[in-house]
Nucleic acid binder design. Structure first.
Lengths: 255, 255
DNA sequence: CGTCGTGTTGAGTCGTCTCAAATTTTGTGG
DNA sequence: CCACAAAATTTGAGACGACTCAACACGACG
């Protein structure tokens, strides 16, 4: 098959890992509450641990683990996986730079999902209960937390649309648009990023076969919608993806 | 095709609409905070309106409407629908008795979805901002609200599993197990209930064709997994549905 | 009793899954 | 930096399931 004149030229070198500044981090508001801008340094350090490194493939959280910290992705990327008793598993979420991990465990203080680094990554940790104890002093923590929760709820409402998508092309397009939006929301490029997850993870998440995901990526590339080299991905035609995703009239979604 | 001896006999009369008591309602904790058990009656009445009736097919909320109340379903059932600019729409959620409507709009004070009654229903309303203003007095509102938010987050994490389901049988089984669990969680029968939504709504929500949903229902009935008469549904073999849903080993899900 | 909305049934097509093998990329040790 | 091994991805062929379209049956309601 003839190769189209590639409309989305790719630089030959690998994309450097992306990192968010504190201002773009979902934990920022809470860090402020915790007093990071406060002179009382030693109190801060007891609440927030910065830049803990997690190596590619290592687990940040085990399923069943007790909840006591909220994590924020500083750099890199993570996936959340449910593990069934019979050995099967399913990817249920991805966490991009600036996003919060662990919110769903506040409910009953237990993490339901295993969370694994998809590349060498770093996180900040916030001691949840210590923050609650300081509530009287700083008073705005719960409110910030609630904002974060609702934002997360909103994001997960992407998923019904994913579900409604009948074709593999539609699903992948919805997925890519969502990722782009999320990168963009954190002040990173939504057009050029590294999709650290394996094809298998994407397939699992989208409920498609691994081979199908690959074929659709190729089709998208031939249409000039995007260009990928390994896992580095460059969006060439965001509008085009939105159209395939069937999201053009979705005012509620476009980030 | 031979009709199996029906293992799930159905009573001939229509199921009466179900209703939750206050104790089973998602608003209960908040109503308590609001002082429903408090002697100061007139203050209560300014915060909570009880038993507002919504007729079958009427809208409780319009997309784009300003947020100022949280609703709780007292009896009946509702669906949430996204509406695209180009006229398409998609069912994104259902609300069963005792469940809260409107939580996702706290984020930016706008409702994204149209919410419509699937049968003659009734709701209670809680004035959100009046509650916030009373925070100092009763102090526990935000915390209850946060619990509700996290619970909702948890419930919506059913959806990745739905997404992972490849076959129509799996999807419908996951859906039915979810509905059963939610009824059960509110103290209603999870084995015998009225699925007020049209086949079309279920199909839309599950990303299946209307005809496929019908065919799968029939197959389930022939296998003795359930029995339906119109929209009244009786679960005959919950374990069997769980197996088809692929949820047997899903400790995190079975409610 | 007829109409309309809703649900059922059947036939044929197309897309995605499965399985198997080739190929590329990634990771590791020299 | 190169070579090798392991993992991940690509490619191809065939089968099966879900979709579409169209016609029919049922139920509620006037």
């Amino acid at each position: 098959m003839d190769q189209l004149a590639n409309p989305v030229p790719h630089s030959r070198k690998r994309m450097p890992p992306k990192e968010v500044g504190c201002c773009q981090c979902g934990l920022y508001a809470m860090c402020q509450v915790a007093g990071l801008e406060n002179p009382d340094k030693h109190k801060i350090d007891s609440l927030v641990q910065r830049r803990k490194l997690i190596e590619n493939g290592d687990d940040l959280i085990q399923a069943g683990e007790e909840f006591n910290k909220i994590f924020a992705v500083k750099s890199g990327m993570f996936k959340a996986v449910t593990e069934f008793d019979d050995g099967r598993s399913q990817v249920v979420d991805f966490f991009l730079p600036g996003e919060l991990i662990g919110l769903d465990a506040i409910h009953d203080q237990v993490h339901l999902y295993k969370v694994t680094a998809l590349e060498d990554s770093s996180v900040c940790e916030l001691d949840f209960y210590a923050m609650l104890d300081m509530e009287n002093e700083y008073g705005r923590f719960q409110q910030k937390l609630m904002d974060a929760l609702v934002a997360k709820t909103r994001q997960s409402q992407f998923q019904p649309l994913l579900m409604g998508a009948q074709s593999a092309e539609q699903r992948l397009a919805v997925f890519l648009v969502g990722i782009s939006s999320r990168f963009h929301a954190r002040g990173l490029s939504g057009e050029e990023y590294r999709l650290s997850m394996r094809r298998m993870d994407i397939a699992d998440y989208l409920g498609l076969a691994l081979e199908t995901v690959g074929r659709v990526f190729k089709r998208f590339e031939q249409k000039g919608l995007l260009s990928c080299r390994g896992r580095d991905t460059q969006i060439g035609d965001f509008q085009g993806l939105m159209e395939i995703a069937g999201l053009m009239g979705a005012t509620s979604i476009g980030q």
